[in-house]
């Protein structure tokens, strides 16, 4: 929107808010299509989730106005975050976030911070699993770690998505645990990364479950351990013999690495509590659908839901954690 448009829009919002205050307090509802910004490219994890939510909302008619997914992936998502940051007071713009909410400003110095946006809700947390090719000789995480330790540094290649983002941070954490550096090779998307491992062009990846699930089922990849404090609660068999719940934690395998990625919703700065409540309720309804439950199971997500102060506290803590990890790994912007 243009400057003048924004100004006029704000005036209009203020006017409506004033009327709202004097009249009967009515629940807010979107009055035009809602833009759903994805700070990542088409086909990635965040994009898949956003489009899935769009589908659920449309299919179950959860909102009178449509939800429109817009990809703004430039500068590791900075483009999308800056867009929402700039749309002050606009309640028709929401953004789905991933770890780049923390990593992008820290790594690039692009000026934004989660505090510039209005936190909506945490939808789920995404897990990370250490994968190797099914033909590789390593059956357990311990085997793999021993192999890494016994060879000179940089012998093993780890593929991941993007640079100085979650995958590389995890790699740095594993490096620290083993004491040997692995070569990190960045690719554009999680799907590409998994295929590089299937084709045995690299030795391991830390793909999210949903990115590698099909290859696991197809007998091409093998999960070694999961980077969480406890095993996954999904006990339905994925392959003939294993379920997500059978994957041991990395900690128990001697690699003390824990990392979860945020999948949450943020609003533009300066929106009213009413407007936040509308979206929080909307996502509560989305989470109640059977489609969502199926999606969570398929992608082995951790189904934590948070809003309000609890969510803000979590964000503050997680940001501090990223700062610490990235400082240690030398990923901070100079």
């Amino acid at each position: 929107m243009t400057k003048f448009g924004k100004w006029a829009g704000r005036a209009l919002v203020t006017a409506i808010a004033t009327i709202g205050l004097t009249g009967v307090a009515q629940a807010w509802e979107p009055t035009k299509p809602v833009e759903f910004v994805v700070p990542a490219g088409t086909g990635g994890g965040a994009d898949q989730m956003a489009r899935f939510i769009q589908g659920i909302v449309a299919k179950n008619k959860l909102m009178a106005q449509p939800l429109v997914v817009v990809n703004k992936s430039g500068g590791a998502g900075a483009e999308g975050f800056l867009e929402v940051k700039g749309a002050k007071g606009d309640p028709h713009k929401i953004i789905i976030t991933l770890s780049n909410l923390f990593t992008t400003p820290l790594a690039t110095g692009v000026p934004f911070n989660w505090r510039d946006l209005t936190p909506g809700a945490m939808l789920a947390l995404d897990q990370f699993v250490l994968w190797v090719n099914a033909d590789a000789p390593y059956k357990t995480a311990k085997d793999y770690v021993e192999a890494v330790k016994s060879k000179p540094a940089n012998t093993f290649k780890m593929a991941g998505t993007g640079s100085k983002q979650e995958d590389q941070i995890i790699t740095a954490m594993i490096d620290k645990a083993t004491g040997k550096k692995m070569t990190y090779v960045p690719f554009k998307g999680g799907g590409d990364v998994a295929v590089q491992l299937v084709g045995a062009h690299v030795d391991s990846t830390v793909n999210n479950p949903i990115e590698a699930e099909a290859h696991w089922r197809g007998g091409k990849l093998r999960p070694l351990c999961i980077m969480d404090s406890e095993k996954l609660p999904y006990n339905e068999k994925v392959t003939a013999t294993q379920s997500w719940g059978d994957i041991p934690t990395c900690k128990s395998a001697g690699v003390p690495v824990e990392y979860l990625m945020l999948r949450g919703i943020f609003l533009a700065p300066g929106v009213t509590q009413d407007q936040v409540d509308f979206y929080v309720n909307l996502f509560k309804k989305v989470r109640e659908t059977p489609d969502w439950a199926e999606f969570m199971k398929k992608g082995a997500f951790k189904q934590t839901f948070m809003t309000g102060k609890e969510f803000s506290d979590w964000l503050g803590k997680t940001e501090a954690m990223h700062y610490g990890l990235m400082k240690e790994a030398g990923f901070l912007a100079k």
Binding site: G43, D47, G191, A194, A214, G218, K220
Partner: peptide, 24 residues
């Protein structure tokens, strides 16, 4: 499950909504 083009990537998303997991 790797899209060969951006269009295929979006089509992939569509398949997922139908509960179809592309893959081997």
């Amino acid at each position: 499950g790797i899209p060969g083009s951006p269009t295929a990537a979006v089509l992939l998303g569509g398949l997922l909504i139908w509960g179809l997991q592309p893959g081997p």
